[in-house]
Amino acid sequence: MTKTDRSSQPQSSDSESNSWYDHPQYFDMVFRDETPNEVAFFEDVFERYVKRKVTRLYEPGCGSGRLVAAMAARGYDLVALDNNSAMLAYLRKRLSRRKLPGELVLGDMTTHQCRPRVDAAMCTFNTFRHLTDAESAERHLRSVAASLRKGGVYILGFHCIPLDADPDCTERWKASHAGTDVSVTLRVVDFQRRTRLETLRVSIKATKPSGKVERFRSEFPLRLYTPSQAKSLLASVEDVFEVAGIHDFDCDVDIDRVIDEDLTDAVFILRKR
């Protein structure tokens, strides 16, 4: 039996209870490949749905700021809001390193209003579902409407849950950058249709070039929406928004969708009245 050489084994840090939102570099790695398609989609949306020239943008729940930096690099003025200081610190360094402008706000996405107003806003990957009650969701939509110029658009993307959805769901991703390998497992650990809440557990393993391994695990609730519930929510703010278009996570502005039971990866284009 061969004796194990412990010095050659990856050393793990004891970080199991940490939230992945406190580690922006890994959060960013997982989604960075989506950025070019999303940026192209945003500009297609601006061209199709906004009559004026779009120059000023707002991203509530900006996270690590990959979209903020990408849009700033294309010449847009950005307002970026998040309630996590680690995310904003990461974004601040990213913008500084690339000599890009940006207004960063540590705040609440249910109440913040941009001044001066913006031409468009975007929140495209389930961040909205962190608002776990109807009142918070509506307050957020109204605060975004108050942040937009008339005729401006809010690009809002989130998953809808079909009535026959299987509550047992596990997704896995892998990503690599600069010698660091990251694997992510997302698992639904609780699913309650009555209270319209599901609890997700995210586990991350990051292996650095040195061989050091970091592990993080966190759980958080998200609000559930069936397509009809999403329709009802948007109807509650129809005094300030019209649904100008519906697309999906394929980020193709030429493919129109409607609100039906087949709409699961929904991107709503809400235009300020």
Rank of each mutant, 00 (worst) to 15 (best):
K3F: 12
R6Y: 15
S7E: 09
S7V: 00
Q9H: 13
N18E: 15
S19G: 12
W20Q: 01
Y21I: 00
Y21W: 13
H23Y: 08
P24H: 01
F27S: 09
D28T: 01
M29W: 03
R32T: 12
D33P: 03
E34P: 02
E34G: 11
T35F: 08
F41N: 07
D44G: 12
F46M: 03
Y49R: 05
Y49W: 02
R52K: 12
K53W: 02
V54M: 11
T55S: 14
T55F: 10
T55V: 13
L57S: 10
P60Y: 01
G61I: 06
G61L: 07
R66C: 02
A70R: 01
A70T: 05
R74D: 04
R74T: 01
G75I: 06
Y76D: 03
Y76H: 13
Y76F: 12
D77V: 02
D77I: 00
L78D: 05
L78E: 05
V79G: 00
V79R: 00
A80L: 06
N84Q: 11
A89S: 13
Y90P: 03
K93V: 00
R94H: 09
K99S: 14
G102R: 03
E103L: 11
L104D: 09
V105S: 05
L106V: 11
D108T: 07
Q113E: 13
D119V: 02
A120Y: 04
A120N: 02
A121R: 05
R129S: 11
R129N: 09
H130K: 06
H130A: 13
T132M: 03
T132N: 09
D133Y: 06
A134G: 11
A134M: 04
E135N: 11
S136C: 10
A137N: 02
H140M: 10
L141D: 02
L141G: 04
A145I: 07
L148T: 08
L148K: 00
R149E: 15
G151A: 01
Y154G: 02
I155S: 01
I155F: 04
F158P: 01
H159L: 10
I161T: 15
L163N: 09
D166C: 06
D166G: 01
D168K: 03
D168F: 05
W173S: 12
K174G: 12
S176N: 14
G179M: 01
S183M: 04
V189H: 11
Q192I: 00
R194Y: 03
T195Q: 15
T195D: 15
L197N: 05
E198A: 05
V202T: 11
S203D: 15
K205S: 15
T207V: 14
P209W: 03
S210L: 05
G211V: 08
K212T: 15
E214P: 07
R215N: 12
R217I: 09
F220R: 06
F220E: 09
P221Y: 03
R223V: 10
L224H: 00
Y225W: 13
P227T: 02
S228A: 13
Q229I: 07
K231Q: 14
K231F: 06
S232K: 07
D239I: 03
V243T: 11
A244R: 08
A244H: 08
I246H: 02
I246R: 00
I246A: 07
C251T: 10
R257G: 14
I259K: 07
I259W: 09
I259N: 08
A266Y: 06
